[in-house]
Write a protein that binds this DNA or RNA. Structure first.
Length: 280
DNA sequence: GATAATGTTCGATC
DNA sequence: AGATCGAACATTAT
């Protein structure tokens, strides 16, 4: 569920709510999400320390602890993370709980368990993100010119939709926003990445930044599972132009197209055949 | 019961 | 050798 705007929303919420809090106990309930070895390392690294700062790279949340370690949290499809009063019952699918020193606890919930918790030394972060997580530049903060972006595209003959989903090129775009970005840029999802013109690359880069920024401002998209760091629904689902809108009319002003859904690599893609003609 | 779901990885195949 | 594709992972909701 969570893509860059969702993780950024969680990051901001948690920074405000649990930034500076002390961790007094760590419980790990699921070896799929956090391996026994990682759980041991987490206890050693976290208990007695405080939450010093929160960062994000692509869809990975980075929790920096006092004492020199960082926790990397991937959210998979159904991950959620938010604080609760220690007196509240644990929500369903709680996979990890950090008891804080102030009568609250930070919980990570994940129904499908595609998420993963990793613990690394903070000094190793750049290497881990680049080499182990294989993340490209962050889609929101990447300092990238249209020319540089086109050079990136030129190396790949795969479709532009799959290129956008590949986190090694640009990190943070997932299946919802890939459709939204391509619609905004008026590019057909099957267009080979290396066939995009300079003008198309410019529109695509611009659309990527615009959609990421607007979705963060709306606190992400809640279709089913995603919750903010305050356990609330996001708001961007109200502004989606194509995703989930098969058979409905295109939301571009003056366009009379009907949104189409197609499936590639097992993922749904939504687009408007009028605004996004093949080869267009 | 069948299908699809916001993600990543791994093996097979080009 | 490197790129690319589809299946698999686990669970819930429609």
């Amino acid at each position: 569920m969570p893509e860059l705007p969702e993780i950024e929303t969680i990051r901001r919420d948690l920074e405000a709510s649990v930034g500076g809090a002390r961790i007094i106990r760590v419980k790990a309930y699921d070896p799929l999400v956090i391996s026994p070895a990682a759980a041991r390392r987490l206890r050693k690294a976290a208990v007695g320390q405080t939450i010093a700062s929160l960062e994000r790279c692509g869809k990975v949340l980075i929790i920096n602890l006092s004492g020199g370690h960082s926790v990397l949290q991937r959210f998979g499809m159904t991950g959620q993370m938010y604080p609760l009063p220690a007196s509240a019952p644990l929500p369903p699918h709680a996979r990890m709980v950090w008891d804080l020193g102030d009568g609250r606890r930070l919980v990570y919930c994940d129904a499908r368990r595609f998420g993963e918790t990793m613990v690394v030394k903070t000094v190793d972060l750049p290497r881990v993100l680049c080499e182990e997580c294989r993340l490209g530049e962050d889609a929101l903060s990447a300092d990238l010119s249209a020319t540089e972006f086109r050079a990136l595209l030129a190396d790949h003959r795969t479709s532009i939709k799959k290129f956008l989903l590949d986190q090694t090129h640009l990190a943070g775009v997932g299946n919802i926003y890939a459709s939204e970005i391509l619609h905004r840029a008026r590019i057909h999802p099957e267009t080979p990445a290396n066939s995009l013109s300079h003008e198309q690359a410019r529109r695509l880069l611009r659309a990527t930044r615009q959609v990421m920024r607007e979705a963060v401002a709306a606190q992400g998209t809640t279709i089913s599972d995603y919750r903010t760091g305050e356990n609330l629904s996001g708001g961007y689902q109200k502004f989606l132009r194509v995703y989930g809108r098969e058979g409905l009319s295109c939301r571009r002003r003056g366009c009379s197209g009907i949104v189409v859904r197609s499936v590639h690599a097992g993922r749904s893609t939504y687009y408007c055949p009028l605004c996004q003609p093949p080869g267009g």
